Simulated assay, not measured.
Amino acid sequence: MAIRYYQPKALVGQNLHWTLTWQEEVFAERSVAIPDNTHGLQKLGAMKVTLPDRGKAYTCKLTLSVDGSTMKNTYELYVYPQDNVQNLSVPTIGEGEHLVCLTKDFYEAKELLAQGKHVLYLPEEVAESLEGFYCTDFWCYPMFRDICNWMKKPVAVGTMGLLIQKNHPALREFQSHKYATPQWYQLVSHSNCAILDDATEKSYRPIVQMVDNFERNHKLWLLFEGKVGTGTLMVCTMRLSEIQERSEVKQFTKSLISYMTSEEFSPEQVLDMEKLEKTFIKVRKKKIGRETGMARTAVCSLPILYEVFQKY
């Protein structure tokens, strides 16, 4: 813990008081002496406390205050059980009518859905996407993009943070706000925000989406679900396998799988796999020959084959 103090009135004989509460119940508190005449940044040491085991994930509140003053800060802490182990490298999870098939392959997902399966599609790459970035952009993306280009500096991703359906049952065990908070940092940083501008009806709302800036205004999705024929599909563009050892990622995965292996996983909104294919599958380029003064290139986008001729 630390305090940063610049007021003209000297701090003498003061304490930093901290409390930990859960649903208004105080379960730990203590006071730490602040050295007299503290000015600037003053470190006050670490706090150690054993958090209650409530058998499930929960949030608690840490409050820091200086006695007899208006100085006060509050932090939200997310507490996760230690036994959250979900193996996403297996082909299926669950059993019976709640069996969920896991795949990284779009066409395998398409086949499974045609068989009426529950499918969790976890693409490692998304052809039409933006890089997931936790921090929001500054106030005018076009202006700062042009400045970066002029200075030959990398251009920021330019997105504006998450919009989350916090009460969706897929997130029941991963408590969230409507907006991004720190437990989303790694999940967003290891994600591809799929560009799905024309993939669904305008009324469709994903579970988790990234808000784009006003210039591009793409529909950027990280977690969404839908009905495909007799099958049901959940798409997660967060690369969970890259960060699967982190506590918050384990909890997110547990919450997602718990929902998908329950009777609640029965989305009513319809998804079109042909439209989704344009977002998730790359156009593959293959050089097929050379001629004098010319290289011939074929651009393959199944089921149609285009040939493009380009000068050497």
Rank of each mutant, 00 (worst) to 15 (best):
M1Y: 09
A2R: 11
A2E: 12
G13N: 14
W18I: 03
L20A: 01
D36L: 06
T38A: 11
H39N: 15
L44F: 08
L44S: 04
M47Y: 10
M47A: 09
M47H: 07
T50N: 14
D53L: 04
L62R: 05
L64G: 03
L64K: 03
D67Q: 08
T70P: 08
E76N: 05
N84V: 02
N87Q: 13
L88A: 06
S89Y: 04
P91E: 09
G94R: 00
E108T: 11
E108V: 12
K110C: 01
K110A: 08
L112Y: 06
Q115C: 07
G116P: 03
Y121S: 02
A127W: 05
S129T: 08
F133N: 10
F133V: 10
C135W: 10
D137I: 02
C140W: 12
M143A: 12
K166L: 10
K166C: 09
K166M: 09
H168G: 05
P169T: 04
R172A: 15
K178Y: 11
Q183E: 02
W184Y: 03
V188E: 00
C193F: 08
A194D: 11
I195V: 09
T200S: 01
E201I: 00
I207F: 06
I207N: 00
Q209D: 07
M210C: 04
F214Q: 10
N217I: 02
N217F: 09
L220C: 04
L220P: 02
W221Y: 15
G226W: 01
G226I: 07
K227T: 07
V228D: 00
T230Q: 15
C236D: 11
I243Y: 00
Q244M: 14
K254P: 05
I257W: 04
S262A: 10
E264W: 05
E264V: 03
P267N: 08
E268N: 07
V270G: 00
D272R: 04
L276I: 11
E277V: 05
K285T: 11
I288W: 09
R290Y: 10
M294H: 14
A295R: 14
A295Y: 07
C300V: 15
S301N: 11
L302P: 09
L305E: 14
E307F: 15
